[in-house]
């Protein structure tokens, strides 16, 4: 990166580190922080959408749909999320390949599962064996996002379902008394009012989501954990210009600090949003704000 980096062996400490921390591999490491942020940016709204679907399904009048919604919420509560991560990554991949297999190779007569193998025709492979590396990486990332969205969608569904039930029942009765249909009541009365009740749960969920991002590593994405292990491991002078001992501890310390900063900033931002939303609301937080502002008791 810098001009003086041509011969690292002769450099003084400070310059050596300046060179070491700007190698191509380290640039990959820094870019992987972007991967984490990208994952959060895509997953958060998608999970919210899944959650909304799940919560609506759990309230549906159609019995099978209601069962589906409730099972979706309950299952993720009872089973470790990491088990879901490991499950969905393979299961989704196989589901996609199987569907493509059905469409593209209808005259294939062998079974898809042969003993311990999962065999689909070459045209149904996801992604195609001939496609370039970046397609494979993007597909892996897409699977990871979908997995995160399904798992955290269930958490969000749990929160939103509770928020929907927290909306005072009188509001819904009033809507029905005015002759609104079931659909109108849901969209015009229930949904606009539930967000205040959902916000504490959703901000908690955001924190949980941030803290779940290192699990990307388990899904085979080259994320910050992957790079920290790669770069921190003992570097042999035969293969690199920057030999060093086992520094993985320091790399993970850096990740620890990164996450601490990230959650702290989120916490401050969420507090601020909550304060703004509670302003003038007939809730305990709103009441406390009114009192400190000098309102009558």
């Amino acid at each position: 990166m810098f001009n003086f980096c041509t011969d690292p062996d002769t450099l003084p400490q400070l310059q050596w580190f300046a060179c070491y921390l700007t190698t191509g591999k380290h640039m990959g490491f820094y870019a992987s922080f972007g991967t984490v942020l990208l994952l959060l940016a895509i997953t958060a709204p998608t999970a919210l959408l899944f959650g909304f679907g799940g919560a609506s399904a759990a309230r549906a009048r159609l019995l099978p749909l209601r069962w589906f919604g409730k099972a979706y919420i309950a299952l993720v509560r009872g089973v470790p999320d990491i088990a879901f991560f490991l499950f969905f990554v393979i299961a989704l991949d196989q589901a996609f390949e199987w569907m493509r297999h059905q469409v593209k190779c209808p005259d294939w007569d062998q079974p898809v599962r042969q003993g311990n193998d999962f065999v689909v025709c070459a045209a149904a492979k996801m992604p195609l064996g001939t496609s370039p590396q970046w397609v494979h990486e993007t597909y892996g990332f897409f699977l990871a996002v979908l997995t995160f969205a399904i798992v955290f969608g269930a958490f969000a569904a749990n929160v939103l379902y509770g928020a929907m039930r927290a909306v005072p029942y009188a509001q819904i009765e009033t809507a029905e008394a005015y002759g609104m249909s079931h659909r109108q009541t849901f969209w015009r009365i229930l949904v606009p009012q539930m967000w205040v009740f959902a916000l504490p749960g959703l901000s908690n969920l955001w924190m949980v989501l941030i803290k779940a991002t290192p699990l990307l590593f388990l899904l085979g994405v080259e994320d910050i954990v992957y790079w920290a292990r790669e770069l921190g491991g003992t570097a042999n002078p035969r293969f690199t210009d920057y030999p060093h001992g086992d520094w993985r501890m320091w790399y993970f310390l850096a990740l620890l600090v990164f996450y601490l900063g990230f959650t702290r900033i989120s916490e401050l931002a969420l507090d601020r949003i909550m304060r703004r939303l509670s302003h003038g609301q007939a809730t305990a937080a709103g009441e406390a704000q009114r009192r400190t502002a000098g309102g009558p008791p």
């Binding site: 779940a212 991002t213 954990v225 086992d246 993970f252 990740l255 620890l256 702290r264």
Partner: peptide
């Protein structure tokens, strides 16, 4: 703050290498 603000997964890794 330290234990609630960081992912358990990273804590495991850090502790192991420590």
């Amino acid at each position: 703050f330290v234990f609630r603000g960081s992912p358990l997964f990273i804590q495991f890794f850090f502790a192991y290498f420590l």
